[in-house]
Design a protein around this nucleic acid. Structure first.
Length: 560
RNA sequence: AGAGGUAUAGCCAAGCGGUAAGGCAUCGGGUUUUGGUCUCGACAUUCCUAGGUUCGAAUCCUAGUACCUCUGCCA
C-alpha cells in the first residue's frame, strides 16, 4: 500500500524541480551546524528534514561544520555533533565537510568581487559602520572608503590577509546598496580580521569570511541543490543570491526557509542552554531535563521516537510552539511496543500476608511485554512480606478507588488475590504495615470461580527486592515560554524547582540487576524508565524516568 | 509610504475554485491480570477582518488587521 501522506511545501518544490529536470533531477541537501554548542531537538527537526529529503529523493545529505568564527568554536562540539547525528540514525557517508576547507576558495572569490569593483576595504570602525548603516526606516550612508580604486582594495585586502592590520582596523565589504530596504544588502561586511587560533586551520588565517559570504559559496561548491534553513534567514536570501550571481559561480543552490521548532516549557536558545550548563542549573549538556539530543538520549528517548515526532509535527512556514505532550506521546508510542515490563515500587509500604507460610518462596511467571508477541517471560519471587506502592493503599477509600483498602480484595499482578485485613501505624501516624490474607485458589492472579477484582497492583518481594535510585524528571521551566521574560525578571526565575526529584529507596524486582546502562523498561503502572547511561551498574541501580504512563486515575482524583 | 514573512480548533497541520483530512490534547463508552495499550464515539456550519468576482471561495481579487524576522566585524 502506497502511503498517501501529503507533501510539505519543500517536497512540493523539490518535486517540481525534479519534474523540470533542474540540477539534472538531483537532490543534494546539507545540515550545516556551527560547532559552538550541543545539538538540540530543534536541530533534530532540521536533521530529519535534510537527511530525510535526501533519502526520499535518492540524493544525499552532507554534514558541514560551519566553522568560520574561531573565537566560538571548539572540537568538543564537532565530536558531539557527529555522535548525535549518528545516534539519530543518519549517515553522511564520506560527505563531511568544514567551511574552513573552503577558506582558500572563499578568499579567491573575495578577490573576484574586488576586481569587479563589487567589494572594498572599509577603514571605518565597527561603531562607525553601525552608524552609517542607518535604521530600519532610514537609508544608510555610504562609507567614505567606498570608492577606493580596485588596485588599492586589492592591496589593502592583501595586507589584511598578511596581518598588517589590527583587529577592527579594516573589513572587506560587498558594494551593494546603502539605501536598500533590506539591511543585509547595505554593503555587508564579508571579511573581518581575527587573530585567533582556528580549530582546523590553526594560525594560517587572520581574516575570516562572514556567514553570508561563506554559506552560499560552500553550498555552491558542494553542489547543494536545496539549501534549507530557518525563517530568520529569509532576509539573507537576497545576499545569498547576490554573492553567487556576482562571483559568477557555475552552480546556484536554492535557499528555502522553514519555521524552526519551538517546544513549550523549554528553550532552544544556545545562549540559554550554555548558561544553564555553565552556571550548574543542570548537571551538564546531557542532563535528562535538557532539550539537547544527548540530554533526551540520557532521558531515555529513542531515535525512532524523535524521528517519528519530526515527521508528525510537519514542516511549514508559520511560527509554531509544539506541545511537549506531543513529544511524550511519540515516546510512549514507541516504547509501548519495545519496553519490557518490570515491577518497581517507588514509594514502598510493607505488606504482610498473615496466612502465607513463613519462609516460603514461590516464583510466578510474568510476561515481559504483552504488546510484543515475540517477547519472553521471566520468573518473579513472591513471599510472605512484600512491598507495594504507598499510593496503592487508602485507609478511607472512595468507591472509585480500585486499589487496596481495608476489607477490599485486589489482584497482586501475576500472584494472588489479596484482601486487606488491618493496618499498623507508627508513632507519627504513618501506615507502617498493611496486613492481608491471600486466597490460595487464585494462583497466578486468576480465580476459577470467575469473581472479578477491580484493581491490579504491582509489588516486590521484601526479601528479594533490590534497592534502586530513581530520578523523576519534570519540565525544566514552569512557564510555557520561558524565553518571554517579564520586566525585572530573567529566565532563571522560571526554572522549575521540582524538575528533578530523587528517590533513594525505591525497590525493584531482582531481574533488573542484569540490565545495562541505557536499557529501557516500563515500570508497571508508573512509567518508562531507563538505566542511566553514566551511573548505572549492577551494583548501583540508577533509573531515569523518561516519561510517565498516562494516568487517568489522577484526573479522576483531581476532580474531587 | 523601510524590507521580508506568516495567519485554518487549545497545539501541530492538510487543503491548491466543487462545499473543512489527520495527529496531539480534552471529554464520554467498550475491552483489559498495567486506571497503560487497544477500540468506538464527541470535538471548526467555518478558515484573521471587511468588501468583491463566481452557480459555487479557506482557496481568486481589493482594502485592512495582528503577529514574526532584520539596524553583529555572530551564525
Amino acid at each position: 500500500m502506497e502511503e498517501k501522506r501529503s507533501r510539505n511545501f519543500i517536497e512540493e518544490r523539490i518535486e517540481e524541480d525534479i519534474r523540470n529536470n533542474k540540477n539534472d533531477g538531483k537532490v543534494i541537501t546539507r545540515f550545516p551546524p556551527e560547532p559552538n554548542g550541543y545539538l538540540h531537538i530543534g536541530h533534530a527537526k532540521s536533521i530529519c528534514l535534510n537527511f530525510g529529503l535526501a533519502e526520499t529523493y535518492n540524493g544525499r545529505c552532507h554534514l558541514r561544520l560551519d566553522d568560520t568564527n574561531p573565537t566560538k568554536e571548539e572540537t568538543e562540539y564537532v565530536d558531539s555533533i557527529q555522535e548525535d547525528i549518528k545516534w539519530l540514525g543518519f549517515d553522511w557517508q564520506d560527505h563531511i565537510y568544514y567551511a574552513s576547507d573552503y577558506f582558500e576558495y572563499i578568499y579567491e572569490c573575495a578577490v573576484v568581487l574586488i576586481k569587479k569593483g563589487l567589494a572594498y576595504v572599509d577603514s571605518l570602525s565597527a561603531e562607525e559602520i553601525r552608524k552609517f548603516r542607518g535604521t530600519l526606516k532610514e537609508a544608510g550612508k555610504e562609507s567614505p572608503f567606498r570608492n577606493r580604486p580596485v588596485e588599492e582594495n586589492l592591496e589593502l585586502f592583501e595586507k589584511m590577509k598578511n596581518g598588517e592590520f589590527k583587529e577592527g582596523e579594516a573589513v572587506l565589504r560587498a558594494k551593494i546598496d546603502m539605501s536598500s530596504g533590506n539591511i543585509c544588502m547595505r554593503d555587508p561586511v564579508i571579511y573581518r580580521i581575527q587573530f585567533s587560533h582556528h580549530h582546523r586551520t590553526g594560525d594560517k588565517w587572520c581574516i575570516y569570511p562572514m556567514y553570508d559570504f561563506t554559506h552560499c559559496l560552500s553550498d555552491s561548491t558542494e553542489g547543494i541543490t536545496h539549501s534549507i534553513c530557518t525563517l530568520e534567514f529569509e532576509n539573507n536570501r537576497a545576499l545569498y543570491d547576490w554573492v553567487l550571481e556576482n562571483v559568477g559561480t557555475e552552480h546556484r543552490p536554492q535557499q528555502i526557509e522553514f519555521a524552526r521548532l519551538n517546544l513549550n516549557y523549554t528553550v532552544m536558545s544556545k545562549r540559554i542552554l550554555l548558561q544553564l550548563v555553565k552556571e550548574n542549573h543542570v548537571s551538564g549538556w546531557d542532563d535528562p531535563r535538557m532539550p539537547t539530543i544527548c540530554g533526551i538520549r540520557r532521558r531515555g528517548y529513542t531515535p525512532e521516537s524523535i524521528r517519528d515526532f519530526a515527521v508528525k509535527i510537519g514542516v511549514a512556514k508559520a511560527d509554531n510552539v509544539v506541545d511537549m505532550a506531543f513529544l511524550e506521546h511519540c515516546l510512549r508510542n514507541d516504547l509501548n511496543k519495545k519496553a519490557n515490563r518490570v515491577m518497581a515500587v517507588l514509594e514502598p509500604v510493607k505488606v504482610i500476608i498473615d496466612n502465607y507460610p513463613d519462609g516460603k518462596v514461590e516464583y510466578f511467571k510474568a510476561v515481559n511485554n504483552p504488546e510484543d508477541e515475540n517477547s519472553d517471560s521471566r520468573e518473579i519471587p513472591f513471599s510472605k512480606e512484600l512491598y507495594i506502592e504507598r499510593s496503592d493503599f487508602m485507609e478511607d477509600a472512595p468507591s472509585k478507588f480500585f486499589r487496596l483498602a481495608p476489607g477490599r480484595e485486589v489482584r497482586f499482578k501475576f500472584a494472588y488475590y489479596l484482601t486487606c485485613t488491618s493496618i499498623e501505624k507508627n508513632a507519627s501516624g504513618e501506615i507502617s504495615v498493611i496486613h492481608c490474607t491471600y486466597d490460595p485458589a487464585t494462583t497466578g492472579g486468576w480465580s476459577e470461580d470467575g469473581r472479578k477484582v477491580k484493581g491490579t497492583i504491582h509489588w516486590v518481594s521484601a526479601a528479594h527486592a533490590l534497592k534502586a535510585e530513581i530520578r523523576l524528571y519534570d519540565r525544566l521551566f514552569t512557564k510555557e515560554n520561558p524565553g518571554n521574560v517579564e520586566e525585572g525578571k530573567t529566565f532563571l526565575d522560571y526554572l522549575n524547582p521540582d524538575s528533578l526529584k530523587v528517590i533513594n529507596n525505591a525497590l525493584v524486582e531482582p531481574s533488573l540487576k542484569n540490565s545495562n546502562p541505557g536499557d529501557i523498561f516500563q515500570f508497571e503502572r508508573t512509567g518508562y524508565f531507563c538505566a542511566d547511561n553514566r551511573e548505572f551498574s549492577g551494583n548501583n541501580l540508577v533509573f531515569n524516568r523518561s516519561v510517565s504512563l498516562k494516568d487517568s486515575w489522577s484526573k479522576i482524583e483531581n476532580k474531587n
